[in-house]
């Protein structure tokens, strides 16, 4: 999974880069390190190990120096606590060889803003990591202006080996689907809060009336209301638009976790 095994930097330039990334060979020895929000780490770890990759336990990030050479790819999946995300990325960037790519969720902060926290900006690429989405067949990937082609090659090969197609989108907090989905869930929450209908009836109506695969309330429960709330909060802070203001009921559920009335 290495972008470029023998050189100290991921090389600039298209054609030579491609040649180098083609020479990866040490999958057996190498491992993937996944850190971040518990629900996302669990989901990513399950899919990754099901595809016969070695996984390092997330705690290894604390003693990363000893394992750094074994890490072929690092994945940072914090959406909820950006301070923790920053700490994780700084640790990864300091310890991992310059040729090792880092994938990072950019649902609640853009990749470009994340590159401000690290030194080797070219190795970072963003993904739309929101709980439950990895069950489906496509992953959104967002390069920043610093991301090198060699890094993207690593990302493409990695998801191809998980059997996923990718869509490359512009680097904006929330990317595409998290932004649409969290807005729908938020609107459903406003409808519950103002007693327009019961949560169950809202789920039924959206599934039968517009063919949604899941009702917005049950979807919110599956993703985690804390994750939905964090996504909306990030969009609101990014754009300062009323439409991204999180419903107060959603904010409460982000703390309590469950939908008590169901």
């Amino acid at each position: 999974m290495k972008a470029n095994p023998s050189r100290p930097k991921i090389q600039q330039g298209g054609s030579s880069t491609k040649k180098k990334t083609g020479t990866r060979q040490q999958n057996v020895e190498s491992s993937i390190l996944v850190v971040g929000d518990d629900s996302l780490v669990a989901e990513y770890s399950a899919v990754i190990s099901a595809h016969h990759f070695q996984l390092l336990s997330p705690e290894k990030i604390k003693s990363l120096k000893a394992f750094a050479k074994k890490v072929s790819l690092a994945i940072e999946l914090s959406n909820l606590n950006l301070e923790q995300k920053k700490k994780n990325l700084i640790l990864l960037d300091a310890a991992l060889p310059a040729t090792t790519a880092i994938l990072s969720s950019s649902v609640t902060v853009s990749v470009l803003e994340q590159t401000e926290w690290i030194t080797l900006k070219h190795r970072l690429a963003g993904i739309a990591a929101l709980p439950s989405l990895l069950q489906n067949s496509l992953v959104e990937v967002a390069p920043s202006v610093h991301t090198l082609e060699a890094t993207m090659e690593v990302v493409k090969k990695f998801f191809a080996s998980l059997g996923k197609e990718i869509a490359i989108v512009q680097d904006r907090a929330g990317l595409v689907l998290p932004r649409i989905l969290c807005q729908i869930i938020n609107e459903a929450m406003f409808a519950v809060q103002t007693s327009v209908a019961s949560p169950g009836d809202i789920d039924t109506a959206m599934k039968l009336g517009t063919n949604y695969p899941l009702g917005p309330i049950e979807w919110g429960e599956k993703i985690g209301f804390d994750q939905v709330h964090a996504t909306l909060d990030a969009l609101f802070n990014d754009m300062h638009e009323e439409r991204y203001r999180a419903c107060p009921l959603l904010k409460q559920l982000a703390v309590t976790g469950k939908f008590w009335s169901k």
């Binding site: 807005q183 409808a191 327009v196 009836d201 809202i202 109506a205 959206m206 009336g209 517009t210 439409r243």
Partner: peptide, 12 residues
């Protein structure tokens, strides 16, 4: 319900 909750699907 439907015409309201579906708005962001298109708007966003």
């Amino acid at each position: 319900i439907v015409n309201r909750v579906a708005r962001p699907f298109y708007g966003e």
